[in-house]
């Protein structure tokens, strides 16, 4: 074995496929994208006119829509971290405690949104939230809260909030699944020992489960933030960034600039900045929840 690993050809053979994959599928497109971001081309394969860094200066200093879309993506990330994930953890612990048949039932039910296609989810929520025929407004009227009826996705004041709710709802199952697996991985005897020491109920989970879930939480936070930044399909299918840019997200904006506005060079500049933002967010979230590995 040692001999194999000291054989340069062998090392090359083992490393090369992975490296080649990384280079061609990730590095090369990014470099190409960077090249296009310095041009004003309107579509790939067309006349290329170098414009230097002007796309970037335009983007950083003159483009309100980009900053708005970035802000919305970050808000979504915060929504995931501060609202969705605590709920996921809570439900994961509850699910674990319920046990038996109902555990299986609820586990399946909670995971349903994750197996439904994004298109279906989007249409479903559009229908639910329809101001005139939607069930949500009807429900409000039935319980006597007519005054709260609203054009949820069509009003710039509530569109973003409604969209965040949809996204948090539809991503809930995944988060739950990971935390549930994490909770299941904690040995029962640790709990028993803790109970003997007098830890019960909320305190037990706050002091025991959550710290033990830290590695899962660390990974999940990073994933949540990156998912939020990359959010595209649901927004595109429900509001397409509207009304009036109020639900504009970076990925949707990027897509529309590239393919609706035919500003391919500019869209590539957005994508390069987008990569930087994602890397930065990953770095920061890793720093914030630096999980010490726990062995049990």
């Amino acid at each position: 074995m040692h001999k194999v690993l000291s054989n340069k050809l062998a090392i090359f053979t083992f490393v090369f496929p992975g490296l080649a994959f990384f280079l061609f599928m990730f590095v090369a497109p990014v470099i190409l994208s960077f090249y296009y971001s310095m041009t004003d081309t309107i579509a790939p394969g067309l006349d290329v006119n170098m414009v230097g860094l002007s796309n970037y200066t335009e983007l950083l200093f003159h483009d309100e829509r980009f900053w708005l879309s970035l802000r919305n993506a970050i808000l979504l990330g915060l929504g995931f971290v501060l609202i969705q994930h605590p709920i996921c953890i809570f439900f994961a612990i509850m699910l674990d405690r319920i046990g038996g048949k109902s555990e299986k039932w609820f586990r399946t039910i909670f995971f349903i949104p994750c197996v439904i296609s994004v298109v279906v989810i989007s249409r479903m929520w559009l229908t639910l939230l329809d101001p005139t025929f939607g069930m949500f407004n009807k429900l409000l009227s039935v319980i006597g809260l007519d005054s709260l009826q609203h054009v949820w996705l069509g009003d710039p004041n509530t569109a973003l909030g409604s969209l965040l709710t949809i996204l948090i709802w539809s991503g809930f199952g995944w988060g739950l699944l990971f935390y549930y697996a994490g909770v299941k991985g904690i040995p029962e005897d640790i709990y028993e020992a803790a109970r003997l020491d007098g830890a019960v109920g909320f305190k037990l989970h706050w002091k025991m489960t959550i710290p033990l879930l830290k590695p899962v939480i660390a990974v999940q936070m990073t994933l949540a933030i990156v998912t939020a930044l990359k959010q595209m399909e649901t927004v595109y299918l429900t509001t397409n960034g509207g009304p009036g840019d109020s639900t504009q997200f970076v990925a949707v904006y990027l897509y529309n600039q590239a393919f609706a506005a035919s500003q391919y060079g500019y869209a590539n500049a957005i994508s390069i900045l987008f990569i930087l933002v994602c890397l930065l967010a990953t770095f920061v979230s890793n720093k914030l929840v630096k999980g010490d590995s726990i062995e049990y």
Binding site: I42, R65, D155, P156, G242, P243, G244, D245, S246, N256, Q257, A260, A261, S262, Q263
Partner: peptide, 20 residues
């Protein structure tokens, strides 16, 4: 105009009607 003008002008109309 250009496709970029179409995108920007239509987006402006959307903003006008909702918040602008």
């Amino acid at each position: 105009g250009t496709a970029a003008f179409k995108d920007a002008s239509q987006n402006a109309v959307g903003k006008l009607l909702t918040s602008g």
